[in-house]
């Protein structure tokens, strides 16, 4: 690990001014950043610890959904009565991230700001038609927020202050873990709303999290998901699975998710 300065502001305004400094990097739960720094693959000059910001805390029911602060830890989402009421599948998703140590530190905002292609949360944000609120006062629709591998709509120094999820009629989170990392080899979030289904896929694509239109259409028309052709084109090939295998998992997990929705 290289040397760095450390600051822990206690309000969002101070955090924003610190983040404006050259070489500043936000530190939330540190579950991705810290290992990267330990391997000397990241060299921030200033770590702005945002875990003490009251503006990023809290879970609250809002009209038609639930608003979760960007600094809320996975364990808090997992156990939140508000989340369990609004979207039990979202609470389940949080409860399956990493291990207890990760869930006790990692945050919603940290996860989606990092936008690891195998992270769990981006699938939920996309499937539950989430809106990402930021420290610049922007409200960004999920479809616009995720922009490829580790890329988001966030600007330099901009923090995720909250995510507002729509409460689905029913939903399910189907995580098929990669055997080593236990990230999603393929994770499929299936949600049903009054106006139709949304199927979001993580872990599978070279372009990060995405919605699968054909699977959504089949669900909307009551079609047989086994007959949906999921294209392997653009899917990840690695030690743990070919694009064809991932395509199969997308279809199987979507089918099972649709049957398991609560």
């Amino acid at each position: 690990m290289y040397n760095f300065e450390y600051a822990k502001p206690d309000n969002l305004e101070t955090a924003k001014s610190l983040m404006a400094r050259e070489g500043a990097q936000a530190l939330a739960g540190g579950q991705s950043l810290t290992p990267t720094m330990k391997q000397r693959l990241a060299q921030p000059e200033l770590l702005v610890d945002i875990t003490g910001l009251p503006e990023l805390k809290g879970v609250a029911r809002v009209d038609g959904g639930v608003r979760i602060g960007g600094g809320v830890r996975h364990v808090e989402v997992e156990r939140s009565a508000e989340v369990q009421a609004a979207a039990p599948a979202l609470a389940q998703l949080a409860g399956k991230i990493g291990d207890p140590q990760v869930r006790n530190r990692g945050t919603l905002g940290g996860s989606i700001a990092n936008n690891d292609p195998s992270a769990c949360y981006p699938a939920a944000v996309l499937a539950l038609d989430g809106v990402v609120s930021t420290s610049n006062g922007r409200d960004i629709a999920a479809a616009d927020f995720f922009q490829g591998l580790y890329e988001t709509a966030l600007e330099e120094g901009e923090l995720v202050t909250a995510v507002t999820f729509k409460a689905p009629m029913r939903a399910a989170w189907m995580k098929f873990p990669q055997p080593a990392s236990r990230f999603s080899l393929v994770g499929v979030f299936v949600a049903q709303f009054a106006d139709g289904h949304r199927v979001a896929v993580t872990g599978a694509s070279e372009s990060g999290v995405f919605r699968h239109g054909d699977l959504e259409a089949a669900l909307n028309t009551g079609g047989d998901l086994d007959s949906v052709a999921v294209s392997p084109s653009g899917l990840i090939a690695d030690l743990h699975g070919t694009p064809e295998y991932r395509a199969n998992l997308i279809r199987v997990q979507a089918k099972r998710g649709a049957a398991a929705m609560v």
């Binding site: 055997p179 080593a180 990392s181 690695d238 030690l239 743990h240």
Partner: peptide, 20 residues
């Protein structure tokens, strides 16, 4: 599975890819 690619790079060089 300890896997090397054809250039001799260890593909499963951490617990992210080497499953215990």
């Amino acid at each position: 599975n300890c896997a090397y690619d054809e250039t001799g790079q260890l593909v499963s060089g951490s617990f992210m890819d080497y499953a215990m």
